[in-house]
């Protein structure tokens, strides 16, 4: 085998973890989803704690699917770098967008998310009034 051929080790021959790992991953995902849904009944006073818990659980689910089901754990590092680079770049870009729109400025994570859209803060203009009637001068001529 040539040197090139020798280095062409296909990473699709992942370590065969058997179905047990996939089942365990699925059960973990199902439990996390159930806990996420249960936040509907968490006390409203928890506020940002609920939001933070949801984001943490979402991130764990994302990583579990990517690492186990998409085999990033066993695959070539380059593939994980490509995917996570895209994901992190997306988060960075759009957090920058949110920051530029001051979305977090008003009341933080626990309150209403608003952004400085002038159309939300500017009162509606008064409805247009009817134009004054045009009075034509009569010349009185025949």
């Amino acid at each position: 085998m040539s040197a090139v051929g020798a280095t062409h080790a296909h990473h699709d021959d992942h370590a065969d973890h058997g179905d047990g790992l996939y089942w365990r991953t699925f059960v973990a995902l199902a439990i996390l989803t159930a806990v996420e849904v249960s936040t509907e009944w968490w006390p409203e006073g928890l506020g940002w704690i609920t939001t933070a818990a949801l984001i943490v659980m979402m991130t764990i689910k994302f990583i579990l699917v990517a690492q186990i089901f998409m085999h990033l754990r066993d695959d070539h590092n380059l593939l994980g770098q490509l995917f996570y680079f895209g994901a992190i770049l997306a988060i960075a870009v759009f957090m920058g967008v949110f920051g530029s729109m001051r979305i977090f400025e008003k009341s933080g994570l626990g309150g209403e998310f608003t952004f400085n859209d002038p159309t939300m803060q500017r009162p509606l203009p008064p409805p247009p009034t009817d134009p004054p009637p045009i009075i034509r001068e009569t010349t009185g001529g025949h």
Binding site: L89, A90, I91
Partner: peptide, 10 residues
Amino acid sequence: LGSECLMFGG
């Protein structure tokens, strides 16, 4: 898929 992350992020 990496580029799709950006589209869905948007």
